[in-house]
Design a protein around this nucleic acid. Structure first.
Lengths: 215, 215
DNA sequence: AGGAATCTTTGAAAAAATTCACAAATTAAA
DNA sequence: TTTAATTTGTGAATTTTTTCAAAGATTCCT
């Protein structure tokens, strides 16, 4: 019974599987077992089989999974078969790094517009991406029909900017600010909090019995 | 019965609470209720109360939690009362941004050394941090007694570098590479995978019934 | 002071996620 | 062809996490 309801925890692992399948395919590998995958992506093999099973019977007993068919299945599932345009809001330290970060390569995502208030950079093109002034944000997002943004503005303006994003129909926000922004529940927020990650790491430290932790 | 065993899910939320308490304290607020906190950090109030209760009875019925005592309790718990030195391995795009990123401000963490193979920058000081050559990594990490690193090297060398880190007794790795690195279970790895975050966001998109997702 | 309102603490229930373990299917080897 | 070795798919058990709900403690208002 495919696709009925994919658990949240499973969904978050799909990109990890996807990437490794990509790697295997590039390496010319034809088949892969859940055990082999487990070793590479550090997820228990039973969990992997369970995850896959939510999408139906993707494997073959005694054989494993066919790399290429699994890959193309996940490519569709993750909507990697078409290019997604996103905008970058806030071209500071981190924003600038993300402009150069090669999302496109493995991801089929392109940053097609960036916004900032700094007039030294607005109007220019950085790493192939035009930088607009924040004043033009709502207009450009509408015209370019962008539905996903990466938010790298200062925490102090995060909510204010978010409200504008919601107004123009943004559906997904990758939030790099430390603020927990408020949005209507038609909008999805994914938080990436660098400070938190470090603090969590420090916290877990001498608590040994360690190993891996998902971001 | 405090401190016996803090659930993983709880531990990952502590930094979020900590930061907001900091904010409240700075704003001169004396007390806060779980409901109020819940609204700000987007975690259910019952979950917050449960989380706190693992550390003992930190609040007062009918009153709420005292901001400053809660703050100083968490400061100790998260070891934010003393400065933690970390190293940055790999000063590329992202690494450079992290050098400028103000971990220190809210975090009491300092990047005290950075490493790269690019001889144009080794030997220089960037954003106040000396950049050493990777050849000197093991020596410097040992001398400086660094136990935590931020790993921003290319995926292709992630495991190789990790092995060296393990050799010199690194205990925590904040892994920005897309590789799932292998470490002995005395070492903790926290993965931050930017591409994954975006893909997850895209995946969740039209699956509406949305809202927040932790990184 | 008395009573209503607030708010934590915490058992217990519910929900979600992981893991075990084995039958069923397939491949590989002898 | 028969046997041994793999390996999936999945009920069931377990573990983890979240949420409910009510008793107990305190504050606030009149």
């Amino acid at each position: 019974m495919p696709n009925t309801k994919i658990p949240h925890a499973t969904a978050k692992r799909l990109p990890i599987y996807y990437r490794y399948l990509h790697f295997l395919s590039d390496a010319g590998k034809k088949r892969v077992s859940s055990t082999e995958l487990a070793d590479a992506v550090k997820v228990d093999s039973a969990t992997i089989r369970r995850d896959f099973s939510y999408f139906g019977a993707l494997g073959k007993r005694g054989y494993g999974y066919d790399v290429n068919s699994l890959l193309s299945f996940f490519r569709k599932t993750l909507k990697q078969d078409k290019l997604t345009n996103v905008a970058l809001i806030g071209v500071g330290n981190l924003g600038h790094a993300l402009l150069n970060y090669n999302f496109h390569q493995s991801n089929n995502v392109r940053i097609s517009a960036a916004f900032d208030i700094n007039e030294d950079i607005t109007g220019t093109i950085q790493s192939g991406v035009p930088i607009y002034h924040m004043n033009d944000m709502k207009e450009q997002l509408t015209v370019q029909q962008i539905k996903i943004v990466i938010l790298t503005v200062p925490a102090s303006v995060a909510q204010k900017v978010t409200n504008e994003l919601v107004e123009v129909g943004i559906k997904g926000i990758l939030n790099f600010t430390p603020m927990r922004i408020t949005v209507p529940n038609t909008v999805r927020v994914q938080n990436v909090d660098l400070t938190n990650e470090l603090q969590t790491l420090i916290y877990f430290l001498d608590k040994f019995g360690s190993h891996d932790t998902e971001a």
